[in-house]
Structure formats: C-alpha cells, structure tokens
Amino acid sequence: MSYEFLQILWFILIAVLWIGFFFLEGFDFGVGMLLPFIGKKDEERRAVINTIGSVWDGNEVWLLTAGGATFAAFPEWYATMFSGFYLAFFLLLVGLIMRGISFEYRSKDANPAWRNRFDWMIAIGSFLAALLLGATFANLARGVPINADKMFTGNLFTLLNPYGLLGGLTTVAIFLLHGANFLGLKLEGELRERVNAFAKKLWIGATVLYLALGVFTYAAGFWARGIVNPGIVPIAAVAVLLATGYFINRKMEGWAFIMVALNIVLTQVTFFSMTFPNVMLSTTNPEWSLTIYNASSSQYTLGVMSIVALTFVPIVLTYQGWTYYIFRKRISTDKKSLVY
C-alpha cells in the first residue's frame, strides 16, 4: 500500500472513530444533562441512569480510541491540537472525570443530598464535555492561528470565539435532543410521557441553533477549504433534523432517534469533507496548515496500525453491539427491577 493511501485511510478511520463517538456518547451526554430534569424521585433518576448504565463506559472508549489513533497516525496533529487546546481539554477532562465518578459514587450513600449532588455533577460534567467538544470541532473547521513551526499561537480565549461558542452550544442542543430520543426509546410509563414533552421543546432549540450554525458556516466561507465538496450532505443533515420534529410529534421514538443519529453522522461527514486533506487549518497563513501529508507518522507505523486495527475493530464492534442487544428492554421505575 502506498504511503498516500495509508494517510488517507487513517484520516477516514479517525473520522469514523469520531463519528462513532459522537453518535454513541451524544445520547450519553444528553441523558446526563437531562438527568436532574427528567427524574424527580430517586427511582426515576435511577431508571434514567440505568438506561445508559451498561453502555456509557464503552461509549467513552471511542473518544480514547479517536485520540489514541490521532496520536499514533498523525502525531503532529495530536501535538498541535492537544498542546494548543490545553486548557480547553483540561476542562473537558475535568467534566469527564466528574461525570464518571458520579456514576459510580452516586448510589453508595442513601443521603438524598449526596445523591442530588452527584446527579448535578453528571449533568454539569456532560454539559462541559459536550460544549467543549463542539467548540473544538467548530474551531477546527474555522481554523486556528498556527505558525510556521506547526505551533498553536493562541490561548483558551482564542477558542471561545463566536463561531466556536455557537458550535459548542449547537452540540449541546443536538445531544440533548439525541438523549431525549434515546430516553423515549428506553423508558416506559409516566417518564416516557415526560421525555416526549421535553423532546418537543428541545427539537425547536436544536433546529434553530443548527440552522444558525449552518448559515454562519456558509456566510463565513468555511465550506470549500479542502478539496472535497460536501455536496448535498449538509442539506440532508438539515432535512433529517426537520423530519425529527414530525416523528417526535407522532411519538415514533425509534424513527426520531434514527433521524437525529443520522444528523450527527452527516454533520460529522460534512465536517471531515470540509477540511480534507487539512487536519488543522491555520488562520495566520494557509501555507502553514497541518495536512495529512505533513502531520502523519511514517509508512511503517501506518502499515502496522492498519493491520492491528483491521483485526481488532470488528471484534470490538461485535461485542459492543451485543451489549446493546442484551440490554434492549425498556426500564421501568418499579423498585424490584432497578439495579443500583
């Protein structure tokens, strides 16, 4: 396999990992953010947590794999991005740590104040993670100041520009909707009704923000930076998001979930086609952008990685899919069936 082929292959694989992550952790973050609002009593909150209880850990692994693959396949991209976005990623990690610990510690004490505190930590941690990841990707699409040595020359506030913030808030809104749809599929009875009411309002917010993001991206000319024309993909993404509203109104939760999932996937495909073959655009001077050609590992490394990935990824996908299949039953708030 030629060097160029391997570089393009790994760009696509990393894109797939990020897409998988946003699709899976999207509803985890959404459920986390909705937790204090959907669940009023302890059994209700327990039921909400149980919907993602068996899968949230596995979903987070997609983030680790995406980061790890970036490190191994494109070390210069990893270095510039993770060192450049240092404080933003530190906050992201704090959010993820808070969230992870809260899932585990929450049930260990009967004190309602203890549980409430950790439930809010789940919500805030999920919110921070969604916001910062959205802002990161928006900034990657927009471009960030990078000098001739492939060094990021801004600071935390460079990332909190209007476009980045809009990207972050849109991601939060879409994940809230995604989470609400997932809860609609997994809960039953009164909780299911409550979730449906939420979903209707969340859909409006998500659509407005998403359209705003699309308009901003188009008006600022971020589309055709790379060599691939996204084509009808972004239009399809908007269409499925609008279709979601119809399905939520008709309480067809399965279809609503599929529509938002498609929206997330198509948005990410748009993003990666927009930037290809750049991985980090430089606003200081386009010549200094990182591309898959100047930021990648050696041919040997990419070759070995490809063999390992093609062996293990199908296994991982199989057992993760199997987990979802096993835990497919709806969760009730009946105390006998809840697992603490």
Binding site: D42, E43, S107, D109
Partner: peptide, 27 residues
C-alpha cells in the same frame, strides 16, 4: 475524590461485612 473515597471506605468498614448496599432513598 480522595475525601469522598475515604468517607465511603470508612462508612462501609464500620458497617462491617454484612452491610447491604443502599437502594432507594425512600426506603
């Protein structure tokens, strides 16, 4: 996190090996 952990470990150590895990707070 260490503070929370020590609190929990102390609580469960004092309760002994027969303590049951907490379920619903309404119980």
């Amino acid at each position: 996190l260490a503070v929370a952990m020590v609190y929990l470990m102390k609580k469960y150590a004092i309760a002994g090996p027969d303590a049951t895990m907490h379920e619903s707070v309404d119980v």
